[in-house]
Write a protein that binds this DNA or RNA. Structure first.
Lengths: 399, 399
DNA sequence: GGCATTTGGCAAGGTCTCTTACGAAATTTG
DNA sequence: CAAATTTCGTAAGAGACCTTGCCAAATGCC
């Protein structure tokens, strides 16, 4: 049991440098050897050697010449997109979405399918069928998939293989249920919380690009938050970080008055779509049935609806104030059904109230631009990072 | 502008390995060459070379032989404690505390002095005088101090050099005020929030040892929290992470127009020492004057005091529930005057209440064992880490 | 068409590390 | 008290990698 802190040998050096070159290839696209040398800080011969190794392993290919302003034309290299494939699966409330991306991050096939039965057996059959159709459409074999990433609601307990806090997926809370996802694809697979993936998606392709510390707050049928710290997803000790459904927010103590609310948590009870409807009814609009209806009426100037939105703003501002007090983020992105569709009504008032609730500066608040695709894109992002490591491990070790 | 991701050259390799050997020397204490080789994963000759270099730089010395069960006695090496000195300063509410530690982390001198005037000029004079006495006591020159670490209340704005949110240090909120701390010692210096340092102290020498994600929650005259994520202090985007004084907890409505009422719902207002006294008075015990008095009366069975403590438990439990909802920690350590002295009354009831307020498992809750020294020990810990890097940078580059 | 510029490739040299092997030192055993 | 044994420390040899420097090739500009 060595600690192996930072000590390295020369052979590890070569692997590290090959990794660095491979990473730069993705970051810079088609690129010449001298450009790679400058980007990595390595010498030309070292870069050349690394490219030769990566080429032998089938991870890199030449893609032609580039005529510069003067001088000999440079040979351009790029990572071979077909060197790996990522299957991203978003198990959503009403839709199951699958995407197949190559190692370059290009999406080559996509299927959106209404969620059928949610029992593990039926859902697995649906997913397996969809995955088969997706790989067939892309013309690759099932075994060519390097990695599969599943985005699910709830918390995946890696010890028992059960899925906690996901009441919409009955049967998935039994021990070992999540492990059955391995049957969807012969590849290795990851299971992540959907809101966490949305945060990663926003960090990679959306508003969080280049922001060190930020969070994605989802408000819809339920509530949740994904936290990115130092550019990395933060999961917490048991994977429950960002479970803001249980943030103690709201008038009085709903946990004592309503035992049913204890299960859903406080913030979720008052601020989710159902919470907005309940607020409208409490204010006297007894025939309110959906959050969308309340928002539409508020836009039309209906006083009761506007007051219900005010109540929602109050709850959201309190929650974001609590998050800010703890985390002091640069940016909070609002997502989820309520967050996106009600964004125009919520954003301004929340931004106005927040400065009065925090210690110094409030974080920037924005509405997600990725919308419902945030989870899927986050799964692709997570999958790409892991898959690029995987293909390297396989080939570099083998060489 | 190279990105220099992970690419390395052979010469950087030597520096890395020297660092690794140096680090292991601190971790393992007097240790032989073969032991170092095993701990670092390097070969014996490599370790020997690194030790020779470190020895030439005056960072390492031989400390005798160790006779094993059989075979040749091993030469033992240790990091030279006198290779660097850390001055740790805790600018507390009623005391200024200074400690001088050598690079091995041994405390060689300490002074606790009542806080005099808190104006920058007077405080600087006091600190400079105390630092002089401390170095003189240890028999080293002022210039021998490698690094000074200051723990202060409030938030240090590195752009302007002002100290925000520290009403007890008048004058320190002016631009450039904090920069004047450079006059206390000719060494480089760091300024950290006192609660953040206490968290580091608890992580290094206290209950947080070996815990990846935990927080130190301080409740006393004010409130605050230091967060350790992945064993590293998390400061947030502007250094305000853990400012739980502004957590919207309690019955007041912070959104009301009255600015004084705005703070009534905040955690610090309701849960600090003053908040406990106010709660006792509101319950009918009009002559209550201090939190200690309330706790003592509660221990004696006084009904009003016990109800005031119940109110406090409620507030603390809600705050910890909010922190848990966001961060999902393994452990929360209670500190500060109220947290430590009222710990026996708060800990049990809070532990009982918390499971009903969180999604899955609540974090472990414990009362700090370091007490008032947590800040100072945290400053030593932060200083040691930075100073060990500093002495290496100086000498390795020079060689 | 010549020249400057840039790229690609190669060779030589240096640095770091590891492995192997041997001598030195200390303890145990006969 | 000497031999055997075990362990430590170091030297030599070899392998791997990186860098410097040079020359050829290709392109555009004057």
């Amino acid at each position: 049991m060595t600690t192996q802190q930072t000590a390295s040998t020369t052979s590890m050096l070569r692997v590290m440098n090959e990794r660095a070159v491979f990473g730069e290839l993705f970051r810079l696209g088609p690129v010449s050897r001298p450009e790679l040398a400058q980007a990595t800080g390595l010498s030309k011969p070292t870069v050349g050697g690394a490219l030769a190794n990566l080429g032998r392993a089938g991870l890199v290919r030449e893609v032609g010449l580039r005529a510069g302003p003067a001088g000999r034309s440079a040979l351009l290299y790029e990572a071979r997109p077909e060197a790996g494939w990522v299957l991203a699966v978003d198990i959503g409330r009403s839709f199951v979405r699958l995407v197949l991306a190559n190692l370059a991050g290009e999406i080559v096939a996509r299927i959106d399918d209404p969620s059928g039965s949610r029992s593990p057996t039926d859902l697995l059959a649906q997913l397996t069928d969809l995955a088969d159709r997706l790989t067939a459409e892309a013309g690759i074999a099932r075994a060519d998939v390097t990695l599969t990433v599943f985005g699910t609601p709830g918390i995946h307990d890696k010890e028992t293989g059960a899925l906690h806090l996901a009441p919409n997926l009955p049967g998935w809370d039994l021990p070992g249920a999540v492990d059955r996802l391995s049957m969807v694809s012969p590849s290795p697979y990851l299971v992540e919380n959907d809101t966490d993936l949305a945060a990663v998606g926003e960090a990679t392709y959306g508003l969080g690009l280049g922001v060190a510390h930020f969070a994605y707050v989802s408000i819809g049928t339920g509530t949740g938050m994904g936290i990115v710290i130092d550019g990395k997803l933060y999961r917490g000790a048991r994977g429950c970080a960002g479970e803001i459904s249980y943030l103690p927010i709201g008038e009085g103590d709903p946990l004592q008055e309503d035992p049913a609310a204890a299960r859903r948590g406080m913030f979720e009870t008052v601020a989710s779509a159902d919470g907005i409807v309940a607020a409208a009814r409490r204010l006297g609009w007894t025939e309110a049935t959906s959050a969308k209806q309340v928002f539409d009426a508020a836009r039309a100037g209906e006083p009761l609806a506007r007051r219900a939105v005010e109540v929602e703003v109050n709850h959201v501002a309190h929650a974001l104030a609590a998050v800010t007090a703890v985390l002091d983020l640069e940016l909070i992105v609002l997502g989820g059904g309520v967050g996106v569709q009600g964004g125009d009504l919520l954003l301004g008032p929340v931004q106005d109230r927040l400065p009065h609730l925090v210690a110094l500066q409030p974080p920037r608040i924005e509405v997600s631009t990725l919308g419902a695709d945030a989870v899927l894109m986050g799964a692709v992002s997570v999958g790409l990072t892991a898959a690029r490591d995987l293909v390297l491990d396989r080939t570099v070790v083998a060489s």
